[in-house]
Amino acid sequence: MSGPALPRVALRRPTQLEAGIAILLLILLVALLAPLIAGGRDPALILPHERALPPSLARPFGTDLLGRDLFARVLYGARVSLMVGLGVAAAATLAGTLVGVIAGYVRPLDGVLMRMVDGLMSIPPVLLAVAMVAVMRGSVFNVILAIALAELPRVVRLARASVQTVRGQLYVQAAITSGARTPAILIRHILPNIAAAMFVQATFIGASAIMLEAVLSFVGAGIPPTTPTWGNIMAEGRSLWQVKPHILVFPAILLCLTVLGVNLLGDGLRDRLDPRGGGAG
């Protein structure tokens, strides 16, 4: 071989993990810098004579039925989506892991806890979230709470199943014969060994929460319509999508991109967190 070697970094394909992180960082940046990127466009400003305009240089995403700038609304909407995704992932995973670990390790409580979770699970997530938001008034916090509760059963079941797998492992029995007490076994052996599964699950919960929030806003049960979210923008564009597709398309693209990023992050993490994988993922 002759000639200088090409830099390898430039040639290597990004891993799933890297691609996911890159997409999410981009969207996080968009959400944080929304006022800056929007360049002074006010997402709430109503201009009746500029209703439902198609995309142009001045209005990159066009305007909605009230003449509000869609570019600004979609950018600001990223804030709600990310907040809901992150909030739900954190809340559901923490609470669900706690309940699941107790159910999985403390035999006498298993039956009671899991029947309660089954009950919760028998209610369709959208219906449960709609009912909760209807009772509590729609706000970002309440929407996060409602979606987290709807997602809780999935987390509990995974945590419990993981704990039961791990507690049957010989190394847990070895810890018992080594004299380790139950809290030590839970913290040193059980939690680290289920953490990877829970973490990956958290990313999928985050993705599904972002979509569920959009669904709630879409059916008008979510965050107040004055706050722009991808869901309520799409809901507005739904009736006119054949003649004014731009209203629906832009928030939909961003929603897809975000969910894709979160899923890539989850898949990449799953490969990376396997102690035997060595990060080759």
Binding site: L170, Y171, Q173, A174
Partner: peptide
């Protein structure tokens, strides 16, 4: 223990 693969926490 019997199984040297399962008895050590990975």
């Amino acid at each position: 223990f019997q199984d040297p693969y399962g008895s050590l926490d990975p």
